[in-house]
């Protein structure tokens, strides 16, 4: 018998520390599969964020380093410039990338660094216990917005991919979701493209992954899939936001 779906080589056998139904496991598996498919495991360097995915170096079976909160794009810039033959990517959550690391991602994108960014957006701070993130939806209840997020008090959900799409240095940005098998396959395609761009020296690529956080949203795992479909996707529409290879 032939194995048709099996554990990727770029993923260690360590158990994930994520809550049941968390989307991080799916996103990290997709990254591992893409790296396996390109056969670049030996020359890939990942940068883990601060947040739920902070232990990513325990899960991926290639070189992974850790950066201060929000700083993976700066660390990735340095690694890529010193070791230009390596494939360098950052894996960041929305608290890491959109909040404390907003300056780093903005400037790394504007410089058009030849790196890949996987941005996992679950509209909440998961690791610290479910506080409001910049990406939290209006009306969404979190521990720091117990009556729902209000625009007059905390502003609007930050559409970081659209904002970065305005910059000339950016080559490719796509938003995907991992809430059903079809979307997972599309997410894999987008991540594959983002890595392909880097291999071809095209420049800055970012994939935003809308991901489940059932514990933070206070819903069951299965309801979280519906929650993405009904609440997250209308605010953060899926699709290609910028692709220079198509526009030129």
């Amino acid at each position: 018998m032939k194995k048709v779906f099996s554990y990727p080589e770029s993923l260690k056998k360590t158990k994930f520390s994520y809550c049941p139904g968390c989307g991080h496991g799916i996103s990290q598996r997709l990254v591992a599969e893409v790296i396996d498919e390109f056969k670049i495991r030996e020359k890939t360097i990942g940068i883990a964020p601060v947040g739920c995915a902070v232990f990513a170096y325990n899960y991926w079976n290639f070189d992974v380093t850790e950066a201060a909160h929000g700083r993976p794009p700066a660390v990735a810039t340095a690694i890529k410039r010193v070791l230009p033959d390596r494939i360098v990517f950052t894996y960041q959550g929305d608290g890491d990338l959109a909040s404390i690391g907003a300056a780093e991602i903005l400037h790394a994108a504007n410089r058009g660094e030849n790196i890949t960014v996987i941005f996992v957006n679950n509209a909440i701070y998961g690791m610290t216990g479910g506080q409001m993130a910049p990406t939290t939806l209006l009306g969404q209840k979190t521990w720091t917005t117990p009556w729902g997020r209000k625009a007059e008090l905390s502003g609007y959900p930050m559409k970081i991919s659209e904002a970065l799409g305005q910059l000339d240095g950016v080559h490719y940005i796509e938003r995907v979701a991992v809430n059903n098998p079809e979307n997972v396959l599309k997410a894999k395609k987008a991540i594959k493209k983002a890595f392909k761009n880097q291999i071809a020296n095209k420049g800055f690529s970012l994939v935003e992954v809308l991901s489940m956080c059932p514990v933070g949203w206070a819903v069951t795992s299965v309801e979280a899939l519906q929650w993405i479909e009904e609440k997250l996707i209308p605010v953060y529409p899926l699709g290609v936001i910028k692709d220079k290879s198509k526009s030129t």
Binding site: M1, K2, K3, V4, F5, S6, Y7, P8, L11, K15, F16, Y18, P20, G21, C22, G23, H24, G25, I26, R29, N180, P181, V184, L185
Partner: peptide, 17 residues
Amino acid sequence: GKCYQMCPEVAIEIWKE
């Protein structure tokens, strides 16, 4: 492979003849 695609723990493996 839908179960494999959706499994957040990568706990499912599938073999085919």
